[in-house]
Amino acid sequence: MISRRHFLRFLAGFGAFGASTTAYGVGVEPMLRLRVARYDILPPQWPADFQLKIAVIADLHACDPWMTLEHVEAIVDRTNALNADIIVMLGDYVAGHRRVTRYIPATEWASVLGGLKAPLGVHAILGNHDWWEDNIVQRAGQGPTRARQALEAAGIPVYENDARRLTKDNHAFWLAGLGDQLAYLPASRFRPVRRIGVDDLAATLGKVADDAPVILLAHEPDVAMRVPARVALQLSGHTHGGQVRLFGWSPVVPSRYGNRLAYGHTRVNCDVIVSGGLGCSFMPFRLGVPPEIVLVTLGGPPSTIS
């Protein structure tokens, strides 16, 4: 099976595909298009009279020239303008490819993200690239990563197999954040770590102390197959919607379940929403899946996207 890396390389360089399409996929869709994907859902576990608006930011991959600090500032401004009750960030803040003119230090992009504001706060988890691009952590086999330190310094809590009880309008819910499932690169003589992930789903949900509904943040969506029905909603990123999506189908998806967990709203054991993300991984190319901020309204009508 062709990998996402090789597919994107092939697509970006495939002359017959058309120079104009390639130029659009490199210079227009990833950099100039930004939409808000809106989902209005009512999971069975969620009280019908409890409305909660969640703004979701995923897969920034901050770097010049593709995701500049100015671009991040625009994303922050547009997210704040949504007036969500809570903002969650799903990881992969650092660059995910080498075709950059500058790697933006974590302190810089985290400082900009510190401008996010919501009544119930801003909450974050880490993604695989936040771990992979930290050579010190990879060699040591343990964190914390530079990304986590920078986010926490900016006043944004980072969840790693942890959960927190929040309330709005006398309704309680739990926000749970799973440790990354692909945190460590495969073991080598330089990286002795044998276990790839730092995720512990049982420990995370074990911190939920009552029967209030649970929202789970998990960077990679595949864990949905193991998430119990106790969870009302899982929010994930990582896939970028395949980064190329044609007629609702992604040719290459970094998920063992393919297009089932590539993008959008589905239901496995719980409701799952997979964001198409904002930046690019492996290649600065997006086609048919423009960068997006996600706005989820729990307690509303069926899903829509605009």
Results as ranks from 00 to 15, higher is better:
His97Ala: 12
Ala74Tyr: 04
His171Phe: 14
Gly179Glu: 01
Thr304Glu: 06
Cys270Thr: 07
Pro30His: 07
Ala58Glu: 04
Leu216Gln: 05
Gly15Trp: 13
Leu120Val: 12
Leu233Met: 05
Lys207Trp: 09
Leu201Pro: 03
Met225His: 14
Asn259Glu: 08
Ala176Gly: 10
Ile273Phe: 05
Trp131Met: 03
Ala19Met: 12
Asp211Glu: 10
Ala183Arg: 03
Leu69Val: 03
Gly264Leu: 01
Pro228Gly: 07
Arg146Tyr: 03
Gly121Ile: 10
Gly155Tyr: 04
Arg267Lys: 09
Leu175Phe: 12
Leu216Tyr: 02
Ala147Gly: 09
Ser188His: 10
Phe190Asn: 14
Gly288Ala: 11
Ala95His: 15
Thr167Pro: 06
Ser3Met: 12
Asn259Ile: 08
Val244Asp: 05
Gly96Arg: 09
Val198Asp: 10
Val244Gln: 04
Thr68Cys: 07
Pro30Gly: 11
Ala147Asp: 10
Met1Cys: 13
Trp132Gly: 06
Ala106Tyr: 05
Ala202Arg: 15
Met31Trp: 13
Pro284Lys: 07
Gly288Thr: 10
His61Val: 02
Leu90Thr: 13
Gly288Lys: 10
Arg256Glu: 13
His71Asp: 09
Phe50Glu: 04
Ile41Leu: 04
Glu70Met: 06
Gly206Trp: 11
Thr21Ile: 15
Lys207Pro: 08
Tyr39Gly: 02
Arg245Met: 14
Val289Leu: 04
Pro213Glu: 08
Gly179His: 01
Pro254Cys: 13
Leu233Gln: 01
Ile41Trp: 00
Val88Asn: 01
Val94Cys: 02
Asn161Cys: 09
Asp169Lys: 11
Gly197Ser: 03
Gln243Pro: 09
Gly277Val: 02
Met225Tyr: 14
Asn170Ile: 10
Ile125Glu: 01
Ala187His: 13
Asn80Asp: 13
Val28Phe: 06
Lys168Ile: 12
Val244Thr: 06
Leu8Glu: 11
Trp249Glu: 04
Gly206Lys: 11
Val214Leu: 02
Gly15Thr: 14
Ala55Thr: 03
Asn161Met: 07
Ala187Val: 08
Arg4Leu: 06
Ser255Gly: 11
Ala74Asn: 09
Arg189Tyr: 11
Thr297Trp: 02
Ser306Asp: 03
Leu32Val: 12
Ile2Val: 14
Leu90Arg: 11
Ile215Met: 06
Ala12His: 10
Ala74His: 08
Asp92Cys: 04
Gly13Arg: 12
Gly13Trp: 11
Trp46Lys: 01
Ser111Trp: 10
Ala23Leu: 12
Met225Ser: 13
Val198Leu: 13
Val253Gln: 05
Thr204Tyr: 10
Tyr184Gly: 01
Thr145Asp: 14
Ala147Thr: 15
Ala110Glu: 07
Glu160Phe: 05
Ala212Leu: 12
Leu216Gly: 02
Ile75Ser: 03
Val208Cys: 15
Ile125Ser: 00
Gly25Met: 13
His6Gly: 11
Val252Glu: 12
Asn170Glu: 15
Gly242Asn: 01
Arg165Gln: 08
Arg164Met: 13
Ala62Gln: 05
Leu185Thr: 04
Val26Asn: 11
Met283Lys: 13
His265Gly: 05
His171Leu: 06
Ala23Lys: 15
Leu246Gln: 11
Ser250Asp: 00
Arg245Ser: 15
Gln181Trp: 02
Asn83Pro: 07
Gln45Val: 08
Phe285Leu: 15
Val208Gly: 10
Val274Gln: 04
Trp132Glu: 07
